[in-house]
Amino acid sequence: MTFEIEGDFENFYLCHCQHCQKDTGSAHAANLFSQSAKLTWLAGEDAVTSYTLPGTRHSKSFCKLCGSALPGTQLEGLLVVPAGCLDTEVSIKPTAHIFTASRAAWDEALEEVPVQ
């Protein structure tokens, strides 16, 4: 699975909504957003599948062979890229935590958790 993205990301959100928690199995999703960047699949596009949760705008793209999160274009005019799927360094820092009212109860003071 290889792709390239040409252009810049406008936002980098850490989303704490319950849908993103379920998608990632973690406290939040880390997604980059762009209204102008272009996604080009170089290999493996045939293995990309997408799912939109019925009744919502919540969608995700992933590899149907290995389950890896992948860039998605389901929302018209918007490229959404899971930050962890990139092989290159992310050029911007997160711009905001969003949907924090749904934040997981255990997602507090994580910087205090011991490193092992």
Rank of each mutant, 00 (worst) to 15 (best):
N31R: 05
D23R: 07
T56F: 08
F9S: 11
G72T: 10
S50G: 14
S34D: 06
S61W: 08
T52Q: 13
H58L: 00
Y13L: 14
S26I: 00
Q35R: 14
E76W: 01
A27D: 12
A37Q: 05
Y51K: 03
E10D: 15
A37G: 05
C66P: 01
G25S: 11
P54G: 15
Y13D: 02
E45C: 14
A37S: 13
W41Q: 05
V80N: 00
V81L: 04
T24D: 05
A37L: 06
F33V: 09
Y51F: 15
C15E: 04
Y13P: 00
K22V: 15
A69T: 02
T49Q: 05
A47R: 08
A37D: 08
E45I: 13
A47C: 03
L42S: 10
E76G: 05
S26H: 08
S59D: 13
L65M: 06
Y51C: 09
A29E: 06
Y51E: 12
F33A: 08
C20Q: 05
S61D: 13
E76N: 07
T56M: 06
F9D: 13
G77Y: 01
H19M: 08
C17R: 05
D8W: 01
A43W: 02
Q21A: 01
T73E: 03
A37C: 11
Q74F: 00
T73K: 02
A69Y: 03
K60T: 08
K64E: 12
T52G: 00
C20K: 12
A43F: 08
D23W: 01
T49H: 09
L32V: 06
Y51A: 00
V81T: 09
W41Y: 10
S50T: 15
S34A: 07
L70W: 02
C17L: 11
L14E: 03
N31T: 12
L75K: 06
T73L: 01
L78F: 04
T56K: 15
P54T: 15
A29S: 15
A47I: 00
L75H: 02
H19L: 13
C66H: 06
G55N: 12
T49P: 00
N31M: 10
S59G: 15
K64H: 07
N31W: 01
K22D: 12
V81F: 01
L42A: 12
T24V: 04
H16W: 05
C17E: 05
S68V: 13
P54K: 15
C63I: 08
T49N: 03
S26D: 09
A47M: 10
H58E: 14
Q21C: 06
G25N: 08
F62E: 10
S68T: 11
D8V: 09
F62R: 08
S50Y: 03
Q35Y: 04
G44Q: 07
S50F: 05
V48H: 02
D46M: 04
K38E: 11
A30T: 01
D23A: 13
L39G: 14
D8G: 14
L70P: 07
S36V: 14
A30N: 07
F9H: 10
F9G: 10
L42P: 10
S68Q: 01
S36L: 07
L78Q: 04
C17T: 04
L70N: 06
G44W: 04
N11A: 09
G77Q: 04
S36Q: 14
D23M: 11
L42M: 14
T73N: 02
V81H: 02
L70S: 01
S36F: 03
L75A: 02
